[in-house]
Simulated assay, not measured.
Amino acid sequence: MVRFAFFVDGSNLFGSLKGMGVEVDDYQAFYGYLFRSAEQQWRQAVGGSQSPVGVLQRIYWYQVGSLDAWNLDDAQAQAYLKERFDENRQIKAGYMAQAGKLLSGKPQADVALKAWSLCFDEMKGWYENKKRILDGMKRFHHGVQSSTDLIDVLEIGHWKVDFFGHSCEEKGLDTRLAVDMIALEDNYDVAVVVSGDADSIPSIDLMKRRGKHVGAVEFVRGYPPEQKGRGFSSKIKLSADFVARVYEMELVSKKVAKKAEPASQV
C-alpha cells in the first residue's frame, strides 16, 4: 500500500478555482478526484501498473486563521494611524482633494480634519469587512472539516493588514506547509502539493532525496490537451516527480465542480 498525502495552500486552491470559474460543494469528492488523477500520474512516473495500491491517507489544508488585531475605537490607535496618514503625502493629497470639494471655501485646517475623517472611515469599514470575511472563512473551514475524516484544516496563516493600501499580506502559511512536509514524513509515501509558492521547493527537493515521491497539481482552464486548455504556471511543477493536470471542463462534466454564478466570480 502506498500512502498519499496532500499539502494544500488554501489561497492558491481558491485562486485556481476562481480562475477556472468553478465552485466546489463536496470537498471530499473533489479531493478524491484529485487523488485519482495524482495516483494515475504517479504510476506513469514510477513505471507501473503493477505498483502497490494507492490510498489517500490525509489532506493537510492550510488556511488563514487570523489577522492583525486593531481596536480602531482606541484613541492611541487612531493617533498612530493619523501620524502615518500625515506622513504619507500621496495618500493625504488624495483625501485632501476629496475633502476640498466637500468643504469648498472652508479653512485649510477644516479640510485637513475632513480628509483624515474620510480616510479613517474608509479604513475602518474596510477592516471590519475583513474581519467579517475571516469569520465566514472560519465557519466554512469548520463545516469542511466536520464533513470528513480525511481533511485537516490548519488555520495557521495570518493576514498582515495595510490600512492605507486596503490590502492584506499573507504570512506563515507556505512556510508551515513546507515545514510540515518534512515533519510529517512518516505519515506518507507520496506527497502531492497544491501551491504556487516557490518556498516549498527546498522541502520538495529534500523529501525526494529522502526517497519520497512528490507530485504537484496544475489546474487548467478549458478542456484536456486535445481540445486545448490553459494552465496556471507554477515553479513547483518543475521540481516535482509528476504533475497531475486537472481540467476545468472535466471537473464540471464529472460533477466534481460546477460553473460559478457570475456574481461569485467578482
Score class of each variant (00 low, 15 high):
Ala183Phe: 10
Ala244Arg: 00
Gly165Asp: 09
Trp61Lys: 04
Phe164Thr: 04
Leu134Lys: 03
Gln227Asp: 10
Ser66Gln: 08
Arg209Asn: 15
Gly215Asn: 03
Tyr33His: 12
Ser253Arg: 14
Asp74Met: 00
Gly215Pro: 05
Ser195Cys: 04
Gln108Tyr: 10
Ala112Trp: 01
Ser66Asp: 12
Ser117Arg: 14
Leu102Ile: 11
Glu122Pro: 05
Cys168Met: 13
Thr148Trp: 10
Asp68Trp: 00
Gly54Gln: 02
Leu134Trp: 07
Glu39Met: 10
Lys130Gln: 15
Trp42His: 12
Pro52Tyr: 00
Cys168Tyr: 10
Ala29Trp: 04
Leu13Arg: 06
Leu67Asn: 00
Arg176Gln: 14
Met137Leu: 14
Glu128Ile: 11
Asn129His: 13
Val214Phe: 05
Ile201Ala: 07
Tyr27Cys: 01
Ser239Arg: 00
Asp73Tyr: 07
Phe164Asn: 07
Lys114Pro: 09
Val2Leu: 12
Tyr95Gly: 01
Val111Met: 01
Gln108Ile: 08
Tyr127Phe: 13
Ala97Thr: 08
Leu81Gln: 13
Gln50Met: 13
Asp25Ser: 15
Ser66Met: 07
Glu170Tyr: 01
Gln28Ile: 08
Asp121Gly: 10
Leu103Gln: 00
Arg139Asn: 13
Lys124Asn: 15
Arg210Ile: 08
Trp42Phe: 10
Arg58His: 08
Ser11Asp: 14
Asn129Pro: 01
Gly165His: 11
Arg209Ala: 15
Phe14Ser: 11
Asp25Lys: 13
Val193Gln: 02
Leu34Arg: 02
Phe6Val: 07
Ser264Ala: 14
Gly105Thr: 00
Arg58Phe: 01
Ala240Lys: 01
Gly48Leu: 03
Asp186Leu: 05
Ser66Cys: 02
Asp189Ser: 05
Asp152Leu: 11
Trp42Ser: 08
Leu81Lys: 11
Trp159Met: 12
Lys258Glu: 08
Ala260Ile: 02
Arg43Asn: 03
Asp241Val: 01
Ser234Ile: 05
Ala198Cys: 11
Ala109Thr: 12
Met20Lys: 08
Glu169Thr: 15
Val266Met: 11
Gly211Gln: 06
Lys131Tyr: 07
Ile236Ala: 04
Leu238Gly: 10
Gly65Thr: 00
Ile91Thr: 11
Ala115Met: 02
Gln78Val: 13
Ile91Ala: 09
